[in-house]
């Protein structure tokens, strides 16, 4: 399984691997917002947390169809399904690799971009914590969506439609935590909900993803 993780990370970092795709998209969205909203520091700082969360979520969504599509096209998925690795392990590793190549860079870039949106200083820590807690759920849910649409040519639209509603709870509690943090309020409750959602998806969804992958391969 470690071999699979290192292979996926290596593939992502090589040319055409898609590493940086989500990051670049996140960067573009956040840089464009001040141009669209106008140079009003008070307005920007009040929407900063929400914009950063939306940007991170969409950047995550952008790279989802790569999770299984490439392995499906070149036949590796069939070969992996007949290998000693259980499918539950396979989808968990795929989700982890997706988070390491997409979610983690977004978390790292968020504080830098938050400066551009004039996020209040007390909001930085809550923003990082909420993204750190929330992005794993985005990757795990996204892996489930990718497993559902594997084998469908250009299934990106279907994938987005399936996954976006499932992203809503994570977005609500994640953005709520970041926003309350920026306003200097207590963030324990939304963070607890966010952590709960993440733990729940990590515990349950790999089994669902493996089940739909099994059906799709057959």
């Amino acid at each position: 399984m470690i071999a699979l993780l290192t292979r996926d990370l290596r593939l992502a970092l090589r040319a055409g691997g898609g590493f940086g795709l989500g990051l670049a998209f996140f960067l573009i969205v956040v840089v464009m917002v001040p141009f669209a909203v106008g140079p009003r520091a008070d307005l920007l700082s009040s929407i900063a947390a929400g914009v950063l969360w939306i940007g991170a979520l969409l950047a995550c969504l952008l790279s989802l169809d790569r999770i299984f599509a490439l392995d499906w096209e070149d036949g590796s998925l069939d070969l992996l399904a007949t290998s000693p690795i259980p499918l539950e392990g396979l989808v968990s590793i795929k989700a982890l690799a997706h988070w390491l190549t997409t979610g983690l860079p977004l978390v790292a870039a968020a504080p830098v971009l938050a400066v551009m949106l004039n996020l209040p200083p007390q909001g930085f820590m809550p923003l990082i914590i909420s993204l750190l807690l929330g992005t794993p759920a985005l990757s795990v849910i996204g892996t489930f969506g990718a497993a559902l649409t594997v084998g469908i040519k250009r299934g990106g639209l279907l994938l987005s439609l399936l996954v976006l509603p499932l992203y809503v709870p994570t977005l609500i509690f994640g953005a709520e935590a970041a926003r309350r943090g920026a306003d200097g309020l207590d963030i324990t409750t939304p963070l607890a909900f966010l952590a709960g959602i993440t733990c729940g998806t990590i515990a349950l969804l790999p089994f669902a993803s493996a089940a739909v992958l099994r059906i799709n391969l057959r």
Binding site: I2, A3, L4, R7, R10, L11, R14, A15, G16, G17, D71, E73, D74, G75, S76, D78, L79, L80, T82, S83, P84, I85
Partner: peptide, 24 residues
């Protein structure tokens, strides 16, 4: 099982491709 597709990653070298399957 070996099907019509070989499951080869074009950006990895020959050795890396084989070493991956050996580890799996």
């Amino acid at each position: 099982y070996a099907g019509h597709a070989d499951g080869i990653k074009p950006t990895l070298t020959v050795v890396e491709n084989l070493a991956f399957w050996a580890q799996i």
